[in-house]
């Protein structure tokens, strides 16, 4: 508290579940959203399941009193708390998305329901970033770019899962999804660079946080997994295939790249949670 201290509640011990829960919630909602754009039913079902079972389950496991979680729904916390709003977003997405999936299976496509489900899926993708950006004491998180970065990462991950499903079980043509994936890749890389640059200007704690990530304890994870696997490899493949005039890369290779991409996204979230340092309460000069 005199030096910059790292947050531990949402990453150490049982806190690891929060990291995984945010990832799976956003990945699931992103998969549902992207799959719905391409009318890919297996993708929508997978996204719904990833969000409900992995994301929701891990969130509940993390709580000190999971059986009290109903209190979140009956309290007025949604007015100010992003966790509360997140629960509503996830809940409404799962309910509307679930009804839509049932109707799609046994009756005609309900378009209005799908739009509503997509809206809440999109808000679900945003919510992790919004919950973190509300934390004033951690300059690395308290940044307007973070929700946008998490949103792009979630949608990009969703595009990746949709592509994986198309490659494994077939269905719609994958070229359209591939094009969207490349757009998200470019945006993601650009956002990570701008986000880290912006964070260095957010006081000493912000600068130290970025230093922790790129040169400190978490640098190996950041450079190897986030940058190497998650950015450089997919970017290299896309540039090579574009310049060589290859219309579409081989399915096995593309699947590997997508798994690398998801690993990169997961590791970036880990680095952001791990490197989140609090502003010290007092500076070496004394009371601030």
């Amino acid at each position: 508290m005199i030096e910059q201290t790292g947050q531990t509640e949402w990453i150490e011990g049982k806190g690891i579940l929060v990291w995984l829960a945010f990832f799976f919630i956003e990945l699931g909602a992103g998969t549902f959203f992207i799959s719905s754009l391409f009318e890919n039913l297996p993708g929508m079902v997978s996204g719904w399941l990833i969000c409900a079972v992995l994301g929701g389950g891990l969130h509940l496991l993390y709580l000190g009193h999971p059986l009290r979680s109903w209190r979140i729904l009956v309290s007025s916390g949604w007015k100010t708390s992003w966790i509360s709003r997140g629960l509503y977003f996830v809940g409404l997405f799962l309910v509307l998305g679930g009804i839509h999936l049932i109707l799609t299976r046994w009756a005609s496509l309900d378009f209005g329901l799908l739009i509503a489900a997509d809206l809440f899926a999109f808000l679900t993708v945003m919510y992790g970033g919004l919950a973190l950006s509300y934390v004033q004491g951690i300059p690395l998180w308290n940044c307007g770019l973070l929700p946008i970065l998490f949103c792009v990462a979630g949608l990009w991950g969703g595009t990746g899962v949709t592509l994986l499903l198309i490659l494994s079980i077939g269905g719609i043509a994958k070229s359209g999804v591939e094009e969207i994936a490349w757009i998200f890749l470019g945006s993601y890389i650009l956002l990570v660079i701008i986000y880290l640059m912006a964070a260095t200007y957010r006081g000493r704690a912000g600068k130290f946080s970025v230093r922790e990530m790129v040169r400190g304890r978490w640098s190996s994870i950041f450079w190897l997994l986030t940058v190497g696997l998650g950015m450089v490899l997919p970017l290299g493949v896309s540039i090579t295939s574009f310049t060589a005039g290859i219309v579409s890369v081989s399915p096995a290779f593309l699947s590997t790249i997508i798994i690398f991409e998801l690993t990169g996204d997961l590791s970036l979230r880990y680095c952001i949670l791990r490197s989140g340092l609090y502003n010290p309460l007092v500076s070496p000069r004394g009371l601030q």
Partner: peptide, 22 residues
């Protein structure tokens, strides 16, 4: 009796004045 143990308050307090009782 109402706390669900999400620890958002602990993370969000800029003064790090809160603790969790695991």
């Amino acid at each position: 009796n109402k706390c669900v143990g999400c620890r958002y308050c602990i993370v969000a307090c800029p003064y790090q004045a809160r603790s969790y009782h695991p």
